[in-house]
Structures are given as C-alpha cells and as structure tokens.
Amino acid sequence: MSRSARAIAVNAALVLAAGLTLLPLAWMVSVSLMPTGEASRLPLRLLPSAPTLEHYRTLFTRLDVAGYAANSALLATAVTAISLVLNSMAGYAFAKLPFRGRDALFRTLLAALVIPAQVGMLPLFLMLKGMGLINTYAGVVIPGLASIFGIFLVRQYAQSIPDSLLDAARIDGAGELRIYRSFVLPACTPILTTLALFTFMGTWNDFLWPLIVLSDQDRFTLPVALANLLGEHAQDVELMMAGSVLTVAPMVVLFLALQRYYVAGVVSGSVKG
C-alpha cells in the first residue's frame, strides 16, 4: 500500500471508531430534544423533527433535578476538598518526611490497594448505622475521606521536590505546616489538580455507595435519582435521555476543560502501579 493510501486508511478508521464511540452520546442528546414519543416511532429519526426543551423543563420543574444536582455537587466538592488535604499531607510525608517504619507502612498501604472496596461495605454500613450516619451526607462522604491511590499519586510527584529547598526553609525557621502550605502545595499543583479532578468526577459518578446510604429522595445524588426515575418513567425515552444528559454533561465539560491533567493522572497512575 502506498503511503497516501495508508494515510487514508488510518484516518478513515479513526473517523469510524470515533463516530461509533460518540454515537450513543450523540443519540442521547438528540433524543433528549425530541418531542415525547418521537424516538419510539417508525421510521427511525436520528434528529428531532422540532427540537424542544420540554423534557428538561419537566425535569427541573416537576422532578426537582436541580436539587439532585446540588446534592451531587455538594458531596463531590466536600469529598474533593477533604481528601485533597488528607492525601496531600500523607503523600508529601511519605515522600519527604522520613520516620522509622515509614517505607514499610507505605508498602502495606499499597498492598491494601488490591482489596475491592465492596468487601468492607457491609460492616461499614452497620458502623455508620450505629453512628446514626445512614441517610446523611456525612455517611456518603466518609469512605472518600482519604484514598490510597491519592496518597500514592501525591507521593510519586512530591519525590521530585528538591530536599535543599525544604532544608533552606527549615533553616529560615519555617515550621513544617508552613513549608507544606507555602512550598509543597504550590509545587504539587499539577498533581493536586489531577487528583481533585479524579476525586470530584469519581464521587459525582459513584452509584453503589450513595444508593446504599441514602434513603430519602431529597438527598439522592443525580445517578441514584436517575436510576430511581427509570423505575417510574422507563417508557418515557426522551425524558430519561434528558436526565442522562444532565448527569453526564458536567463531567464532559470538566473533562474537556482539564483533560491534560486527567490523562496525565491516568498515565502516572500506571507507571509504577
């Protein structure tokens, strides 16, 4: 095959692959804008005959989607903020603040990565029930307070901070907390951005744990509310697609804005995993 024929083949394959990949998402958006019932009619329509926002309006006015979105945003923000502080402190210490038994401790932590989160779920549920935290926001946040993977990512990155910089600050009389805030956090901004993005999106997209913990509909996150909506509105394709768009859209926007950090995190998580 000549070079130009190969170039055409490669790019055609890419267009086809990207088209197939985006098709379900494009279809979701298109159907969400169709008048009720149009997606189920024959012959097949790919685009709405008369685009309408009626399903979005229904979601906001009758089905309180704004409330669910606010719950999701609140929980994702809380988990992100808290875990960012805890993970960055621990990750930095594992990289730069030696103490006896530190490396053995870190190895133990890494070994625990192989334990699936679901294993501890049942006792955690009972524990939180005992603490009166079932059906509360705190109950949703608790398993996300700190993460081994987050500590690992920060540690890997913080290792590149020069010791001389930290020592100079110490000689100047800076306390460890000050050094952490004024030198370490700024130096780690890229990895912290990555970690914040992972945590926010992971919490937003999480389903199993909020499903277990939350029982009051007012406290549902978007994914739990969406699954719940499916119970009553399964026949209403256009409405369900509008709900899916609203659940997915913030993540897509966030990813498109910060994708460099996201991809860097995926890759650096795999290097020494």
Binding site: V85, L86, A93, L97, F99, L105, L109, G120, A146, I151
Partner: peptide, 25 residues
C-alpha cells in the same frame, strides 16, 4: 522533628483509611 512532623502528616489519612476501610474489611 521532621520524623514527628512526618507521623503527624500521615496520621489523619491513615486513621481515616484504617477506621473506614481496613477495620470494615
């Protein structure tokens, strides 16, 4: 003093992981 700081810095995250992940497991 660095060692003390190191222990204090890892403590919050490790306590959270121990109580809400390892103990339940």
């Amino acid at each position: 003093h660095v060692a003390v700081a190191g222990r204090l810095f890892v403590a919050p995250a490790l306590i959270a992981i121990a109580i809400f992940f390892l103990v339940p497991v």
